[in-house]
Nucleic acid binder design. Structure first.
Length: 324
DNA sequence: CATCAGGGCCCTG
DNA sequence: CAGGGCCCTGAT
């Protein structure tokens, strides 16, 4: 079908994240749906992404320990990057993967917390990462809405096959997410043929807004939580739940946790109270009281620890909640 | 076979 | 603020 673009130029550099840093816990999220834009193996991470408007591939390799972190970054591109681009890319990846964030205060404070302690012991140094830019993330949140995992995967695959860019690097074939302008040139009907349903309109409207430059990612990063929420909520098709996820994953706000959808409610009920269903209010209040300004990061630790345990040894009740 | 909710959001009243 | 509708799918 579409041509594969080989990314044959290579450049590498060593990065030194702030300790404690957990490589696998940071780069890979076992709770996320699988996307053909990225690949994980223990100690290694590949991702295709768009940077400065060009398709590139990145590879991270774990070369250190939690207390003496070192990551080898290899960048694959069609043409060689100039030194300014290299610097910018490293800066951007450091933001997206929180390499420079010091979370030692958090891990120290909660190492003996009854609920959080065990997760901190296992995953000390795990961070909030999002390898994608704002637009790419918005597209992902749209396919996640009101759909089961399988359908999300189908929609993403269809969109990538038709509008994404297929690249090859380091023996991996991966997709780079489509661009706003590509979607702007496609009719809503054509999108609907890919069985994305009413989301077609969301794709169109969001792509228009992003292409217009009204939502500059770098400017948004400077905003406070409330202002940022308000702004993102203006995107058509992006509601309270998606905004929460954006603040946590894309904007790395560790202190925002105010929305609890039913699916997550069930899982946190088990995690926090070992009961089938606790009220939303009870869960949110508990999280707030126990973990304060670290509440989102803390919840992420107990949540992700659960999914890792599930990956290693399936947990029956969780299996039932993860609807394929 | 029909019905229904799903890892939400928009719009209306 | 509550509730119906939305695209499509797989589960029941």
């Amino acid at each position: 079908m579409r041509k594969v673009k080989p990314l044959s130029k290579k450049w590498g550099v060593s990065l030194f994240p702030k300790a404690p840093f957990n490589f696998d816990g940071t780069v890979y999220n076992p709770g996320h749906f699988p996307a053909p834009t990225e690949e994980y193996r223990k100690g290694k991470w590949w991702q295709a992404l768009r940077f400065e408007n060009k398709a590139i591939g990145i590879k991270f390799e774990d070369k250190g320990t939690v207390d003496k972190p070192q990551v080898k970054l290899t960048v694959f591109s069609e043409r060689p990057l100039n030194s300014e681009s290299k610097n910018e890319l490293v800066k951007e990846l450091s933001y997206r993967f929180e390499f420079d964030k010091d979370i030692s205060g958090f891990t120290q404070k909660f190492k003996n917390d009854k609920l959080l302690g065990p997760a901190v012991k296992r995953w000390r140094g795990m961070r909030s990462k999002c390898g994608y830019n704002l637009y790419e993330s918005l597209m992902i949140y749209v396919v996640l809405q009101n759909a089961t995992v399988r359908r999300t995967v189908q929609m993403m695959q269809a969109m990538l096959e038709n509008y994404g860019e297929k690249v090859k690097f380091d023996n991996k074939n991966l997709y780079v997410v489509w661009q706003p302008k590509t979607i702007n040139e496609v009719g809503e009907e054509e999108l609907r043929q890919l069985k994305v349903g009413y989301r077609a309109k969301f794709f169109k409207r969001i792509s228009e807004d992003i292409a217009s430059g009204t939502f500059d990612e770098y400017q948004l990063r400077k905003l406070g939580n409330e202002e940022l929420k308000e702004k993102l909520l203006k995107l058509y098709g992006i509601g309270p739940h998606s905004v929460e996820n954006l603040l946590w994953e894309v904007f790395h706000r560790h202190d925002v946790f105010g929305v609890l959808p039913p699916w997550e409610q069930k899982i946190y009920s088990r995690l926090l109270f070992s009961q089938k269903l606790a009220s939303e209010d009870k869960i949110l209040k508990t999280i707030e009281k126990r973990w304060e300004q670290y509440k989102r990061l803390a919840a992420f630790y107990v949540w992700t620890d659960l999914f890792w345990r599930h990956k290693q040894k399936p947990i029956k009740w969780l299996e039932k909640e993860i609807r394929l």
